[in-house]
């Protein structure tokens, strides 16, 4: 149903993504594609897979940016997937009820069997989190790996999204952002996690952690010359104590 849950979901499951350690390796991109191709949201098709211009459906993409200039410049990799917004207009615009937000955990999903492929929800998503699948003609989006995180047959440590499990830079964290005492909320508080484009009013669940300030070299006082009392290399003898 395209109506959003009446009251905020008790749990707000989502991701916290650390721009400080993301190295842009694309592991999360492929893991997401691989899991979801064969998972609940799948298949995620690829048109012209071995042709001139391959073009497929992806639920998570990583962009490389340069930010700032000169001394302040840095390279920032930015993973982009659904933020599971509280005020998800992608849901309310949907004419068929295919898009919905789950009351129990806040996950925004598409019911592939109801989607007519009108694309309106993709237009309504400011974050570019939805893609129309060329083969099935239905809208696809990050499911927060709903078929992993709640699969009780998996050992508890594996009940996390594929992109989180795979991230070698440990830049992706999964959990309940509604829990103010939980690890995610604490991480967000400690690191000044931000909400993307709050001015649009979508109230995303996911948060991004900005790069840490970094420790420049300039702070280092230069070394002082070894006192040359005992002449050239005298300090060696002193160091050896003999």
């Amino acid at each position: 149903m395209t109506a959003l849950p009446d009251r905020p979901p008790a749990r707000r499951l989502g991701l916290v993504i650390d721009l400080d350690t993301c190295v842009g390796c694309q592991a999360c991109v492929i893991a997401c594609k691989a899991w979801n191709s064969g998972g609940a949201a799948g298949p995620l098709a690829d048109a012209e897979p071995y042709g001139r211009r391959p073009s497929g459906t992806w639920l998570n993409r990583v962009h490389g940016f340069e930010v700032g200039e000169g001394e302040d410049g840095r390279t920032v990799y930015f993973p982009r997937s659904c933020l599971h917004c509280e005020n998800a207009a992608c849901v309310t615009v949907c004419p068929t009820g295919a898009s919905y937000k789950r009351a129990e955990d806040g996950i925004v999903l598409v019911d592939a069997s109801r989607c007519i492929g009108c694309s309106l929800c993709a237009w309504a998503c400011p974050y570019g989190a939805r893609e129309l699948d060329p083969a099935s003609g239905v809208m696809k989006k990050c499911t927060l790996c709903v078929d992993r995180i709640h699969d009780e047959r998996l050992p508890p440590e594996e009940r996390e999204p594929a992109c989180v499990a795979v991230c070698p830079a440990r830049a992706r964290h999964f959990g309940d952002l509604a829990d103010p005492e939980g690890p995610l909320a604490r991480l967000v508080a400690e690191r000044g996690g931000v909400e993307l484009l709050p001015e649009l009013g979508y109230r995303p669940t996911n948060r991004y952690l900005p790069p840490r300030p970094g420790r420049p070299l300039a702070a280092q006082a230069p070394l002082v010359e070894a006192p040359s009392t005992a002449g050239f290399l005298g300090w060696v003898d002193r160091l050896l104590g003999g």
């Binding site: 721009l19 211009r53 992806w58 962009h63 940016f65 930010v67 920032v76």
Partner: peptide, 26 residues
């Protein structure tokens, strides 16, 4: 763009490595 990547005030922000070289539906 700076706000879009959560780094408000750190403009300019320039895309140097698009996520996919081959574009796509979006």
């Amino acid at each position: 763009a700076d706000r879009a990547i959560g780094l408000a005030g750190r403009a300019p922000v320039r895309l140097v490595e698009p996520p996919h070289s081959s574009g796509g539906w979006l």
